[in-house]
Design a protein around this nucleic acid. Sequence first.
DNA 1: CGGTATCCTTATCGATACTG
DNA 2: CAGTATCGATAAGGATACCG
Lengths: 129, 129
Amino acid sequence: MSQVAAAPFSSLSGRHFEQPCPIRDVLDRIGDQWTFLVLGALGGGTKRFSELAREIDDISRQMLSRTLRRLEQDGLVKRTVFAQVPPRVDYELTPLGRSFLGPLEALVNWADENHGAIVDARQHFAERG
Amino acid sequence: MSQVAAAPFSSLSGRHFEQPCPIRDVLDRIGDQWTFLVLGALGGGTKRFSELAREIDDISRQMLSRTLRRLEQDGLVKRTVFAQVPPRVDYELTPLGRSFLGPLEALVNWADENHGAIVDARQHFAERG
DNA sequence: CGGTATCCTTATCGATACTG
DNA sequence: CAGTATCGATAAGGATACCG
């Protein structure tokens, strides 16, 4: 029997499909600097625009707006506008969005546990040239 | 005490630290188009440069080279050069790299399971404007 | 308060050509 | 085979100003 360990992607090829394999499409979205952080923030519950801006701190309003809009389009975030003055807009995860919190936390936990090792590896690599 | 639901990130703020929180540093690396795919490919076992290029298919040699170099620096990938003609170079995951396969597969599985829902959501959003 | 429009700078990435 | 160097196109992202 051949003991070829299967890669986690059935196919990594992107050239031969109009719609790339799911992981590529998803990576296109969460691969930017902010999407992951916004989803993580919303994992803590419904938040207003300004609350998100304050929590993520160094995100520009421009990018926060774009990121939220895209997440809304993808069905991960629900946007609710209240007819008030001053305006109030709430953002919350949809069920689809909440289902993403599992993989997200797996990655966050890995980062917390292994960040030190990565920093060490970089240091080690730099010292040897 | 207040019952604020904790976000998965202790702090999302990037402004106040020289070294950002671990998840930011990790996202900086895997956030590009290729790192995740290369790690996934190497999850299938040790591979040569040209094998990786063939498997990922639409990656340029330039980007494959850069991605591998960075993963090597971060201690996720081990590079082995054989003194042969023609040259042979093997790439394999280190224990640190293999430990990343868990979070990676969690994300890949989520993408496989929910990609359809995302596509539907986009379609739905586009139809309504 | 919650955005959007515009401009501009920078970083990313691909193509190509070349090397050991 | 396994890269690296150089160049150029493109897009991501930040700053700013303005609007409902």
